[in-house]
């Protein structure tokens, strides 16, 4: 009730300008704005739509509509290499999401709940992976991994190659920051008196965390986890630099194919990847709105 109030006010406020323009028929300004918005959504979704449509064309170059077929999807599913890459991608995404969600949530709790010396430094370290170009992170991880693998060879005598493990380590390194940022946002609005109230009513700190704090920041944690999952699924640059021989990931496969030519098979994979991501976002929005 109290929470709902500012929202209503804001709606009224934003609305106070809108209906007036509405009543004065269509002003040029408003018409332009609407037209522009329409074109922008066309701009954003047109290419995606084209991609989806051309994943069903018979044309073997995948750029012309010559009739409907599901052949490319059939071929894609029959392609062991692609399916293997898809499996790898899901595996990497799952593991890196679990680890980065736990580490990121802990970091978020530390940053929002504690004041300590060096806090701004820690803050900078957390934000840095988000703001530097991904390629900088990718090459540094590549250089570091070659050093580390060399080190392992010298110490243990065993030859270790880059593999899904190195990819997972890299994905976690950049996902932690995103999870931390999302969870911190949900902790910002958290009223710490709720925890005091729980202590006051006889809950120890463990019970307080699991019964009060955790359920209340759960949407934030889920949001962070979902973001980490999608980022990992879609990640291409770090995967490209860190994956080893024989451990291919789906975006890297797509990249290697795309560099050669457009094929309807890529259209089909791309369509499925898009559909998967969009389903995830819409699901997450639904889950968050319900709360």
């Amino acid at each position: 009730m109290i929470e709902a109030q500012p929202q209503n006010q804001r709606a009224q406020r934003a609305g106070s300008w809108w209906p007036r323009l509405n009543r004065g028929a269509l002003t040029w300004g408003r018409l332009t704005l609407t037209l522009h918005a329409f074109l922008m959504y066309l701009f954003l979704y047109g290419p995606i739509l084209v991609l989806v449509v051309f994943s069903f064309t018979r044309d073997e170059f995948g750029v012309r509509w010559t009739g409907f077929t599901l052949e490319w999807y059939v071929r894609m599913f029959a392609n062991d290499r692609l399916m293997g890459a898809a499996g790898n991608t899901l595996y990497v995404a799952f593991v890196s999401t679990v680890v980065s969600t736990i580490l990121g949530t802990l970091l978020a709790l530390a940053m929002e709940r504690h004041r300590f010396r060096g806090r701004t430094g820690v803050d900078a370290v957390i934000y840095l992976p988000v703001v530097i170009p991904e390629i900088a992170m990718a090459v540094s991880l590549l250089a570091f991994s070659s050093l580390a693998l060399e080190f392992i060879r010298v110490v243990t005598g065993e030859v270790v190659r880059r593999s899904l493990v190195t990819v997972i380590i890299g994905h976690i390194a950049f996902s932690i920051s995103f999870v931390t940022i999302v969870v911190r946002a949900s902790l910002k609005h958290f009223d710490r008196r709720l925890e005091e109230a729980a202590r006051d009513l006889g809950a120890n700190s463990w019970q307080t965390f699991w019964r009060i704090t955790f359920p209340m920041i759960l949407p934030g944690i889920l949001g962070g986890a979902l973001l980490a999952f999608t980022l990992s699924l879609d990640n291409f640059i770090i995967s490209l630099f860190l994956s080893g021989p024989g451990t291919s990931l789906l975006p890297v496969e797509v990249y290697n194919k795309v560099r050669r030519a457009v094929t309807p098979e890529i259209n089909a994979i791309s369509t499925l990847m898009l559909a998967f991501s969009i389903t995830l976002v819409v699901l997450s929005q639904l889950v968050q709105r319900r709360r």
Binding site: R193, E196, A197, R199, D200, L201
Partner: peptide, 20 residues
């Protein structure tokens, strides 16, 4: 003695009701 072992209870300024 930590708060959960004290025989007192508190009514908070903004109530601090558990929203969930």
């Amino acid at each position: 003695v930590p708060p959960h072992h004290r025989p007192v209870n508190t009514v908070f300024q903004s109530y601090a009701l558990f929203p969930h």
